[in-house]
């Protein structure tokens, strides 16, 4: 019998699909019967999705050029 505490303990592996099939089945059954755990699972999945969907912002102006400048300076000083 899976409790809400068991569910929370296994949630990380459940989300990463690294929980073994039998445990997964028991957890899925619990989620279907427990509205609170369903909401926690659903909103945690959404949390991960919303961060994964973030595009990397382009580098701020000048950062790339200054980086290349710093690298060139260092390489020259070592040559």
């Amino acid at each position: 019998m899976v409790t809400c505490k068991d569910f929370l303990r296994e949630l990380g592996d459940y989300l990463d699909e690294s929980v073994d099939p039998q445990v997964r089945e028991e957890l899925s059954k619990h989620i279907n019967e427990c509205p609170n755990c369903w909401v926690v699972l659903n909103t945690t999945q959404k949390t991960i999705q919303v961060y994964k969907g973030m595009d990397p912002e382009p580098l701020p102006e000048g950062v790339h050029d200054r980086l290349i400048g710093a690298l060139e300076k260092k390489i020259k000083s070592q040559a």
Binding site: L11, G12, L15, V40, T43, T44, K46, T47, I48
Partner: peptide, 19 residues
Amino acid sequence: KSRLLRARLQLREKLTRAF
């Protein structure tokens, strides 16, 4: 694994307040 779960749940908590 344990830190990731804690982090995800803390973020879930904070984002729930907004969303």
